[in-house]
């Protein structure tokens, strides 16, 4: 479904992502891990079109999307969430999701009321329907994470890029969030690439892990194999995960 072929991103002298090659198949949940500054978010920005790769090719469903504008990438079926939630702070939760409903695909015959109805379904799915008329800036961190997922789903994606959705959440919220992401995969049949620092979640929720270091792919494979790889332990984990 998604294929990265020699993707490189240079910021003048700094090589943030260097010759990254990997492939993600339809229906997979792939974890992307690595130490801070390894280039995970840069890679996500390259896939979502926010940044243009200096070299290499990104293919989505057989089409070259390297250098394609972010809105066009979204229209082709790739949606994303942000490490630090970026809602439209002065709009209600319902309106936030309605933007995704309207813009994710070309919907010439949809009125504002139709979009709000659609948006309320997505809000209900993530458990935010009761807070639909609250301004986004008044929502808690957990609610904002849920709102980002609802907004990403509203664009009717085939592939979702999730950036550290668990950061700053407590244990019970983490459990709910994992359940929610699993529910998303089951009901919407989307493929997920998930950046996460909490290894237990990666072990529990993903089917495959790609490890980045200094902008390059260190290794990739099944989570239990990757966490026992001495190179990964040395570069990222520091100690062996049971």
């Amino acid at each position: 479904m998604l294929k990265l072929d020699g993707v490189t991103k240079k910021f003048e002298g700094l090589v943030a992502v260097n010759n990254v090659n990997f492939q993600i198949e339809e229906g997979e949940i792939v974890g992307l891990i690595g130490p801070n500054g390894a280039g995970k978010t840069t890679l996500m920005n390259l896939i979502s079109g926010t940044l243009k790769p200096t070299e290499g090719r990104i293919e989505f469903n057989g089409q070259d999307i390297s250098g394609v504008a972010p809105y066009d990438v979204c229209h082709r079926g790739i949606s994303r969430t942000y490490q630090i939630p970026r809602p439209f702070p002065d709009m209600t939760a319902l309106m936030n999701v309605a933007v995704g409903v309207f813009c994710g695909k070309n919907r010439p015959n949809m009125s504002l009321s139709d979009a709000m109805l659609d948006a309320s379904h997505f809000l209900e799915f993530v458990g935010l329907f009761g807070k639909r008329n609250m301004l986004a800036r008044d929502l808690s961190l957990f609610d904002l994470r849920a709102l980002e997922l609802a907004r990403a789903l509203a664009t009717t994606p085939k592939f979702i890029l999730i950036d550290e959705v668990m950061a700053g959440l407590n244990q019970s919220e983490v459990t709910i969030a994992i359940r929610l992401i699993r529910k998303i995969v089951e009901e919407f049949h989307v493929t997920i690439m998930w950046i996460e620092h909490i290894m237990k979640i990666i072990m529990e929720a993903t089917q495959r892990v790609v490890v980045l270091q200094y902008g390059e792919v260190l290794t990739s494979g099944l989570p239990e194999v990757v966490v026992n790889d001495p190179r990964v332990i040395e570069a990222y984990l520091g100690e062996k995960i049971a």
Partner: peptide, 11 residues
Amino acid sequence: DDEEVANNLGL
């Protein structure tokens, strides 16, 4: 509110 996010949402 945030034009970069709007762009990423398909606008």
